[in-house]
Amino acid sequence: MNPSIRTTYNQNFTEEKYAEFLLSLNDGLKNPIEFRIAETPVFLTDDFRDKLLQAGQEIVDKILQPDFKELTERSIPDKWRVANENDHPHFIALDFGVCKDDAGNIVPKLIELQGFPSLYGFQVHLGENYRHTFHIPGNQSIYFNGLDKSGYLALLKKTILGPYQPHEVVLMDVNAPKQKTAVDFYITERYIGTPVVSLEDLIQEGNQLFYMQGEEKKRIKRIYNRLIFDEIEGDPEIFSKVVDIRQPLDVEWITHPNWFYRVSKFTMPFLQGECIPKTQFLHELKTVPEDLQNYVLKPLFSFAGQGVIIDVTDGDIAKIPDPENWILQEKVSYEPVLQAPDGGVKVEIRLLYLWPDGDAQPTLAINLARLSRGKMIGVRYNKDFDWVGGTVAFMHK
């Protein structure tokens, strides 16, 4: 991480500024932000930024291979397979831990990946507020590929809206206003005009979908999908109460739900490179590694780290009833590279790509970062710490 900017930032940081920052961040929002925002952004060195770019491109190259769909066909659970899948994901998110290699170099290591949207709207708002409150230098940017705010929002609109008007594209999730990420939904609505609807708001007539805007019924041409099937799995009768979105419908998906499974933990065993931890499907494991303490066991179909076994034993492996749905992955050890006033903090960087229809490949556009002092990255592991939570990385333009 960039030591000179870090030193200046820490010297000028005060709790009063942080409180002002949070007030500014929440000002004008429909509801206050429901997840913790860190006291600081991340400042990347040019060297680490370039390593991230290279690592990300190597993974994207795999997704671009013509046999990628064939490789990942088994990834989609039959009960959640949705009709009318398109040719590519419109969003790709790659999570990298900031680690140290055997030679002592700071390097990115892939933690997870997803063919699903992240906080593409909120990160713009977050970066602007860090810059304003903490006077981030003008030569630092949260964007990639020469984008600025206007260029980024134009690319976001191109991806989400395509040829349609904002009222013809809805951002949809289960009980959308109550989601922890609802702040991103409404900021996205502010930036590009897409109304926010819940699954239960969808109205089906024939194979077409509609929603109500006041007293007026509006046709849906595209769904900007934020629904993860994990969130409705607990209700086996769900599609007797709401529109069954798995059926062939005259609607486009941005991005199609099947890509959530194709670009996921399922993809990890097919990836190779210095930034990729060794990963195997459990049912293809010929012998249990002697250094099992250096591996984690992950279920393929879980969300937000649920079900991960960190301290794996032979007995854990033997007890898995469906090994084809699990991966054994080399442990990644985060290096506490970000210097808080009272010690080091672990960092994870998420590269966020946009892939509008008509483009040959995705464009790396913006980023998200998370800070942790706990055993794992994530809210539930960092409840009692400060200088942790959601943030964004700045880098030289």
Rank of each mutant, 00 (worst) to 15 (best):
L371H: 12
D359M: 11
Q361C: 12
A365V: 06
V379H: 12
S372D: 05
P362I: 04
Y381L: 08
K383N: 14
L354Y: 01
D357P: 00
R370V: 09
L364D: 01
A365T: 06
S372F: 06
G374F: 01
R370T: 08
R370I: 07
A360C: 04
Y381P: 02
L364K: 06
A369M: 12
G378Q: 14
N367S: 07
R350L: 10
I377V: 12
R370N: 11
I366H: 04
W355V: 00
R373W: 05
I366Y: 00
N382C: 07
D359V: 02
R370G: 05
I366C: 06
I377W: 06
R350N: 11
S372P: 01
L351V: 01
K383M: 08
I349Y: 07
M376W: 03
D359A: 09
L368N: 11
M376F: 08
L352S: 08
Q361T: 09
K375V: 14
G378S: 15
R373H: 06
V379M: 15
P356D: 05
G378I: 13
K375Q: 15
Q361M: 13
G358F: 06
A369K: 04
A365S: 10
I366M: 09
L371R: 02
D357T: 03
D359F: 13
Q361K: 15
L368I: 09
V379I: 15
Y381Q: 12
W355M: 00
G374Y: 05
G358T: 03
Y353H: 03
R370P: 01
W355E: 01
I377S: 03
S372M: 02
L368P: 01
D357S: 09
A365G: 00
R380A: 14
A360R: 14
P356Y: 02
R370H: 09
L351M: 10
K375T: 15
K375H: 13
